[in-house]
Amino acid sequence: MNLSYLFDAAHWDLGASGSIPQLLLSHLWYVILALAIGTVIALPVGLYIGHTGRGSFIAINAGNAGRSLPTLGLLMLMVTLLGLGLLPVLIALTVLVIPPILTSAYAGLRSLDPQVVDAARGVGMRPWQVLTRVELPMALPVLMSGFRSATLQVVATATVAAAVGLGGLGRLLIDGLAVNDYSRVLAGAIVVAVLAVLLDLVLAFAQRWIVSPGLRVSR
């Protein structure tokens, strides 16, 4: 096993089909789509449950059930039901993204100081204003940690797309294994890991940017 595949300039040619940059882009595309769809579904549900306190069993059970679903198994089931294509992959990955985002949105709101929420209502904020001006900004640190953990999971798991004929960095793993080219497998593993670390760094910076300094200072 060696790094020859990773450092072969021919594999970094953006124009060549199946090159590392191309696989990286398609991989990133699956990740972004799954995160976007998952957030659009999980965030409002989690915020609603956290804000109202209604249906918290959904948040807790969705978290547990979601985590225990094997993504590869789910993907095969979806392919069986829906046929090949992007849709089954996105469904499988979105199911992976939903639990951490939903649970963190719920937990983020539930963990807030009830006195502060009481004050927000008491000074005359409407429920929507309480949510957007007080609860959401205060819950951001917890929410962001859920989003970051969802991102890490989906970056690693999006490799399954290759198992059903799609692109992404999983190609390097699956094709490499198929032809016993372990240098290619290693290249795939390294690029996935580096991508995960880079995305987490970007999100860490974003978090510093959007979370109020007032929530970081200690007495």
Binding site: D113, A119, G122, G124
Partner: peptide, 16 residues
């Protein structure tokens, strides 16, 4: 409520 001042025990300030 906007027309009534409201002060609570631990002040309930918005930390952010």
């Amino acid at each position: 409520r906007r027309g009534i001042g409201y002060v609570i025990q631990h002040a309930g300030l918005f930390p952010h």
